[in-house]
Design a protein around this nucleic acid. Sequence first.
RNA 1: GGCGCGUUCGUCUAGUGGUUAGGACACAGCCCUCUCAAGGCUGGUGCACGGGUUCGACUCCCGUACGCGCUGCCA
Length: 442
Amino acid sequence: MASQIRVRFAPSPTGYLHIGGARTALFNWLFAQHHGGTFVLRVEDTDRARNTEEAAAAIYEGLQWLGLNWDEGPHVGGDFGPYFQSQRNEIYERYLKKLQDAGHIFEDQGALRFRSPREHVIVDDLVCGKIDFDLSNEQTHPDMTVRRPDGSWIFHFVNVIDDIEMKISHVIRGEDHLSNTPKHIELYRALGAGTPHFAHIPLILNRDGSKMSKRDQGASVDYYIKRGFLPEAVRNYLCLLGWSPKDNREKIPIEEIIPLFDLNKVVRSHATFDPDKLHWLNGEYARELPDDRFQQLGRNALRASGVKLENFCDDYIRAALETCKGKINTFDELAAYCGFYFDDNFNYNPEGAAKHFTSENQPRLVAVRDAFAVLDKFDAAELEATLKATAARLGIKPAALIHPTRLAVTGSNAGPSLYHLLEVLGKEKVLARIDRALTIGR
RNA sequence: GGCGCGUUCGUCUAGUGGUUAGGACACAGCCCUCUCAAGGCUGGUGCACGGGUUCGACUCCCGUACGCGCUGCCA
């Protein structure tokens, strides 16, 4: 038996999916998943119907990336369409007529307004609790406009009608709509429709307490797609913003969140978006990625950074990426981390060069080079043994050789395991790079 | 201005009258270690303020402050 739970995400096609909108969509989706209900996507394009498809594409892309697939809406259809407000004019006309016939509508300079009954309206919110709004004062609560003189519709009106028509059972939306809710309820009543359940979820703010807006870095889901974040990590992080499993877990698979998710566990206060924590959580997911997916995402990231992978053979790329597993948090860090595999003309880290390319280390590096040069097997185990033997012969600690060698072949003080990286690079490149360092380093 | 919501470490949160106020990110130190990560250990920082109620308040009530939202012929 199908559940009667129906929720919707109703974005305006702005050309990007806001991180707060994504979280609202996520909570709706989770609620639907939890109850075996239906998740509807509706595009609220009352105002700017022109480039709707194009502007909505970014929203589809963001939702799909996060795995928030809708059961009804654009592309997938459904029994309550169309799912674009710009195509629902007849429905709105019909409802307007109904209100007009009942005497709820009056004209004001060409615009149409809904006459408020002017009473107290109790909003019984699933997150915020019961709230009493006093709408009796016309000065503070003017009659809302439902239609502009040019015939276009106002959000409050069409939003309510669509929720009625689409049989939405739970309206889960941002807290910025809480104060609008009593007006909406007046409309439901005037239309003789039952009111849905409401749940207003707290807003996501910037570090400085301001509302995240389009201009803020990281306010768009697209930002995380481009920066090589993992959708499951972003989704997990978003779940933790305003909701908690209450058992101290942070990293939770979505399959485990679904049965746990409930509106009454949604926090009432605003949340500040913390990029650091997302970064950490992404690393948690990145570290346990299956090899094939890591390889795929790694290659994508390198190509996006301008690395010409076509100039290298597949085994080499594979081996190179293998040494990076578990080392990066987001894939946009990859090029900086292992770009040396694909570029012989890298620069040396200045601090590192000052510290390790010293006259004292010069002969040591030569010793390493010579030891490596006579090796037949150029694998990690052999390289490690050789380097350590060389250190012992010189009467110094392996570290005294390791650091200059790493800098010489990678240009950096940090990176993948030295012995493995040397193996991947291969004898020819390793020797050439040490030679280059010996020239430049003096 | 009016109305509404909110306020536990810097941040996300647990906590529903009696707790050494817990966890996580970030930060610092130590351990491990071929670097960097990861991992382990340790540490510091918190109940906005003022009144009540109560034997006892982070928890309940009132007020103040601060933040946010709404107050559009934006959504």
